[in-house]
């Protein structure tokens, strides 16, 4: 099979200007992936599925990855002239910037007909809050149906063109997306006998009566 760079060139030859980036994987597994843009993803997926010689007829695994916003501190050295006329000083200036996060969907494609793979496709949303729509690949590979629903449910990525986009593991009417990194679990608590300090502290909030203090194990 082609390397991932060859595959990118082949795709770019067919779809000029599609904006395909190779995402390198530094681990020993060396499974590099292709980052696609949302606009062309479905055309590229159809091409990957139908082109003789590629024939990625099975989309084995679909999953989401959450990359939260990162605060990055840049340190730049600035040379300031000394007002007193002395030699110029080198001052470090720190500036904070927020690198916007994104939600990423990863597709692992294999070819059953030609027995090769995986080709890993990645799609990224613009941000994590209001612009979370990506094209659904369920019309291309049926196996994406439940897995994209799962990504929608647990990560909150909205798949445009999905035939039946509902929650799948959490119940209807549930608000949050539990697989996001900043998910805060609901403040529900069932009393249990534990010596763990933080659990006990939580227990006291929920059961202010003396019954809340479970017996600490005797030393």
């Amino acid at each position: 099979m082609d390397t991932v760079e060859q595959l990118r060139d082949r795709l770019l030859a067919r779809f000029p200007g599609a904006g395909i980036t190779v995402v390198a994987n530094p681990s020993p597994a060396a499974q590099h992936s292709l980052l696609l843009t949302a606009a062309t993803a479905r055309d590229l997926a159809l091409f990957l599925r139908d082109e003789p010689g590629l024939q990625f007829d099975q989309c084995s695994n679909v999953t989401g990855v959450d990359w939260p916003d990162k605060e990055i501190v840049d340190t730049t050295k600035v040379t300031l002239p000394d007002p007193a006329g002395g030699p110029p000083k080198v001052v470090e200036q720190k500036s904070k910037r927020v690198e916007p996060g994104c939600l990423e969907v990863v597709y692992h494609l294999y070819s059953i007909a030609l027995r090769h793979g995986p080709v890993i496709l990645r799609l990224r949303t613009a941000n994590r809050t209001d612009s979370v729509t990506l094209p659904s690949l369920t019309p291309v590979w049926r196996s994406c149906e439940f897995q994209e629903r799962e990504v929608f449910d647990l990560f909150g990525v909205v798949f445009a063109g999905h035939p039946d986009l509902r929650r799948i593991l959490m119940w209807d009417g549930y608000q949050d997306h539990p697989m996001r990194r900043d998910y805060v679990e609901p403040d529900s608590y069932e009393w249990e006998p534990t010596p763990h300090g933080e659990v006990l502290a939580k227990a006291r909030q929920h059961y202010p009566a003396p019954a809340a203090a479970p017996e600490a194990p005797k030393p």
């Binding site: 249990e192 006998p193 534990t194 010596p195 479970p214 017996e215 194990p217 005797k218 030393p219």
Partner: peptide, 10 residues
């Protein structure tokens, strides 16, 4: 259910 399943070092 509560006390008897939490074993201390003794």
């Amino acid at each position: 259910r509560f006390g008897a399943l939490l074993l201390n070092r003794e």
